[in-house]
Design a protein around this nucleic acid. Structure first.
Lengths: 135, 135
DNA sequence: TGAAAAGTCTACCAAATCAATAGGATAAAT
DNA sequence: ATTTATCCTATTGATTTGGTAGACTTTTCA
């Protein structure tokens, strides 16, 4: 299942991207328009900022804004930051690889074989979609 | 993340499939060979039986065995039984569809648009893989 | 200069889910 | 009758998830 965090994060990014100008948008506005708990959204936008997707300004007229062009934001990076590894199992993860403790041989592991394909297919989707593509 | 339940279930199915004969195999043997908690595996094999993948026999010489030929067991059905919906979000699920409470219009939802592609690509992998394929 | 606006940060909490365990009930074989 | 092995229910401990509370900091503007 996709976590609410990722879902809300994606919606917020899409909302910001749909704004032609790159003026700051308040958390409250995004939360209201996208039906998201404001406090929860706060923490999500914070991690998006800390990971280089968003900029922010405090005080009156402040808010969050996109730092990059939507077409330069691949879904791979968004998903990795919000949802974590794209692979469903650490032993097939590119960025978060870990061997399975219980599995003596990856090459002959049925789960490994299947999940490798699933990872590749998911990766292809995320790589071919930027924020601009899903608006 | 893939649940341990699914992981263990897949391993158990693969173990049974790798046995040429379709003689019953005891839970204890599968648990030992695949490094799985026996009690946990019990409940997993039980649901696999209730869902028509396995047959069982009690008493001495009993155990679990595959009911169908491995090449007639598509990963779609295994995943749906063990892991649940293949879609990461209910609003793009074929078998477990549910609208999002917060989303006014699916057609214009960025999450929907992306997750639809992810579902399709995962589905394609699962459909093209039978138990026989991942041995 | 000070009040209001808005993001930042830390801590906490309730509910759900996950992985596993315990222990007895049932059925089959010998 | 005894042993073997699955069947079933209940419980538990740990972790994750989604969300809340509240104080702090920075910026704007009257």
């Amino acid at each position: 299942m996709l976590s609410k965090k990722t879902k809300y994060g994606l919606k917020a990014l899409a909302y910001l991207a749909s704004r032609k100008d790159r003026q700051p948008v308040q958390i409250a506005e995004i939360a209201r328009e996208e039906n998201i708990s404001q406090k929860f959204l706060e923490s999500i936008l914070l991690t998006l900022r800390k990971n280089g997707f968003l900029g922010s300004r405090k005080g009156k007229g402040g808010g969050y804004y996109l730092i990059k062009d939507p077409k330069d934001i691949p879904m791979t990076s968004v998903m990795r930051v919000l949802e974590g590894p794209i692979a469903m199992v650490p032993c097939v993860s590119l960025n978060f690889y870990e061997p399975c403790a219980d599995c003596p041989d990856e090459a002959s592991c049925a789960v490994h074989k299947l999940m490798l394909q699933v990872r590749d297919s998911a990766l292809e989707v995320y790589r071919h979609n930027t924020l601009a593509d899903i608006l």
